[in-house]
Design a binder for these strands. Structure first.
Lengths: 206, 206
DNA sequence: GTTTAATTTAATCAATTGATTAAATTAAAC
DNA sequence: GTTTAATTTAATCAATTGATTAAATTAAAC
């Protein structure tokens, strides 16, 4: 019943993660998943009842992953400048390790926005109130410019995620291979960090 | 043979644009398109030979649209600061009018990166050399900081496109309707413009 | 070792999907 | 007005797809 490490159920889940992230829900057939998992295709329905249910379990897991790193950092007892810097760095590393994740989340939410709430209790998971309070304090301090938390988060997300979202276009346009793309991404991350920190923080404090 | 405005061929093409942009290639059936166009489903194959070919013609058109505005501005005889500002504004207006365009291009290129070249002759269409030269001059002037054209373009694209790419997530997270989202988007555009211009341009010149 | 439950397989379904065919209709050419 | 070509339709295919079923096998309980 346990020791799932290599059980059929686990192999199916792993395969589903891989295939759904590559091809999306519509581009994936249940036979794709069964083949990737190396199991009989009826097993998928035995364990997960339907393609839709299997997908949901994958999507839920990935949406959690998408947010999980942020939340820890939100509550870290560190200064605002360091926190912003950490959030950027954290996202960068996550998408570097999971190059399909961003496309997957963005596309599946675009196709069916309601998945957002069926997959996550946002209020519980992303408790932005702590960060929000810290931002307010920093603004009152004069450390940070007058700005809404929504814009701050969007600035960070846009500049990091988009590097990976449009990876294929970048590589085609500028004739890059994986290696030079990685260099480019690292370089861009540095620029983004500098630009955002410069913009948000008043120059008096360093 | 002509007067295509309301011909079946044209209705199919229009319907294909609408449905493909909403649902993507994998999420669309030929019957969806026929139904949307209000024509017999065999007509699609009569005019376009196959779903793949119809899709290609849509994708090609949309990729051109994606780049078309940029190119004009690249070659405008205006200063660097105004040009950057115009490019940002132009992208913003395009994606505001075509909220699915960004998702469509990003997703279909992610699924099949080679479509990029089958759909566009990049060297011809995006002649970035003019902008590239202007940037070099501006850097030598001391007007602009030392930076690569690739990073400049990516900064602009990221910050504008991503607003619309993650529209559904934004609306869910912050409980926005279409109206307040539009306000938010406008506000964010202003911030992005200011941030990017501040970052790229040395403060001596105004 | 027998019984019972859990897991796996092969065979098969009905529905959907992209595509084709042949006939019917409409428009154009002369 | 007849001939010819272009357009449209209804009917139908074969292949694919998500799912189910019933039988076979394996593991667990006693």
């Amino acid at each position: 019943m346990n020791c799932l490490t290599n059980s059929a159920e686990n192999k199916i889940k792993e395969a589903a993660i891989k295939v759904f992230l590559e091809k999306g829900f519509d581009g994936t057939t249940t036979r794709d998943i069964a083949k990737e998992a190396g199991v009989n295709s009826a097993l998928m329905n035995y364990y997960f009842r339907s393609k839709e249910k299997l997908f949901s379990s994958v999507f839920e897991e990935k949406l959690q992953q998408y947010f999980s790193g942020m939340i820890e950092i939100f509550n870290k007892p560190i200064g605002m400048k360091e926190k912003i810097s950490d959030l950027i760095e954290n996202d960068f590393q996550m998408f570097k390790k999971n190059p399909d994740l961003s496309n997957f989340i963005i596309h599946e939410l675009h196709r069916n926005p309601d998945r957002f709430f069926s997959a996550i209790a946002f209020d519980k998971i992303v408790d932005h109130s702590s960060l929000s309070k810290q931002l307010t304090t920093s603004i009152e301090n004069g450390e940070v410019i007058q700005i809404d938390i929504k814009n701050v988060l969007l600035l960070m997300k846009s500049n990091i995620q988009f590097i990976f979202l449009c990876k294929s276009m970048t590589c085609k346009m500028w004739k890059m291979e994986d290696e030079s793309f990685e260099e480019f991404a690292e370089k861009h991350k540095t620029i983004v960090k500098e630009m955002i920190l410069n913009y948000l923080f008043n120059s008096s404090k360093n």
